[in-house]
């Protein structure tokens, strides 16, 4: 009896878990599914199989400035990643592998500032960008990631745990310059950590909507989330096109995730758990 109950329970749990998994897959099926129909078809009958309009919807998008928008998103993400990672690695190296007055203070500062909600600086940031005459460019969307406390904190954690101090010392004794030590000795150790931060930064900047919405007014400067939110024809929403656009927006994220999922999941878990 008890055993029967046990198998029943297991089955229920199994089914529930399967449903949970299924629910996680829904959007990734729904986006291309709905994106493969015209809006008119979608309204007539909700589809459960793929249609043949995906190419057409994409073509309509490309006739607009979707390509330019896509490029903007790539630029913003690439810029954010490069700057933020370089700056964080340098800072993390400095506070973990050198002993100087203020190192621990800076570390505390970084940890404390992680808690600050980003919106608090939004208004000031917009005004600042206005004063710097940068509001007509993609720069504000990149600069905002430059000194990102979480990225830096993550790098610090990683640097602490996976770069043995002895290697650095021996490098110093060999007379290597500090930048060289960083590039040729430290870098290989922290490569997995960098991979994780790169993906995280990519996710954040690629998916970011609020700040671009407030700061970008020029169609030519739109990023994908902005473009999708503004996708209209005359007075109505083109659902098919919107879904196709969203499919394209999600696509690179999935590809990256599939390729790097192992190091990503590992990285994100280790980074936060050790905190």
């Amino acid at each position: 009896m008890k055993k029967l109950f046990g198998t029943c329970g297991k089955m229920i749990i199994g089914v529930a878990f399967a449903l949970l998994l299924l629910s996680c897959l829904i959007p990734f099926v729904l986006l291309p599914l709905m994106g493969s129909y015209s809006t008119e078809e979608l309204m007539r009958q909700l589809p459960f199989t793929f249609g043949d309009k995906f190419y057409e919807n994409t073509k309509t998008l490309l006739e607009g400035n979707f390509l330019k928008v896509y490029l903007n998103s790539i630029l913003v993400s690439a810029g954010s990643i490069v700057f933020s990672v370089v700056i964080s690695v340098l800072a993390a190296y400095s506070v973990t592998k050198f002993r100087y007055k203020g190192a621990s203070l800076i570390t505390t500062f970084i940890i404390v500032t992680m808690m600050v909600p980003g919106q608090i600086s939004t208004i000031g940031y917009i005004m600042e960008m206005r004063a710097m005459h940068l509001t007509n460019s993609l720069w504000p969307l990149i600069l905002t990631w430059m000194a990102h406390p979480f990225t830096c904190f993550f790098m610090i954690q990683f640097m602490k745990s996976s770069v043995p101090t002895e290697v650095i010392e021996s490098g110093r004794i060999d007379g290597a310059s500090e930048p060289r030590i960083l590039f040729s000795i430290v870098l290989p150790f922290i490569r997995p950590g960098i991979a994780t931060t790169v993906i995280l930064l990519f996710l954040w900047s690629w998916n970011s909507y609020t700040l671009p919405m407030l700061i970008i007014n020029n169609n030519d400067m739109f990023t994908i989330p902005l473009y999708v939110a503004n996708l209209i024809s005359e007075f109505r929403f083109d659902i098919g096109g919107r879904m196709a656009a969203l499919t394209w927006a999600v696509f690179p994220v999935i590809i990256l995730f599939v390729i790097f999922s192992k190091s990503f999941i590992k990285g994100i878990a280790s980074g936060s758990v050790k905190g």
Partner: peptide, 25 residues
């Protein structure tokens, strides 16, 4: 070197986070 390394972060944090925060305040 350590100061040089940490400088960009602090500078950027001040410029793009802290200053806007204070200005918002």
């Amino acid at each position: 070197w350590p100061y040089l390394f940490v400088l960009p972060y602090l500078l950027c944090y001040f410029l793009f986070n802290l200053f806007p925060m204070l200005y918002s305040f």
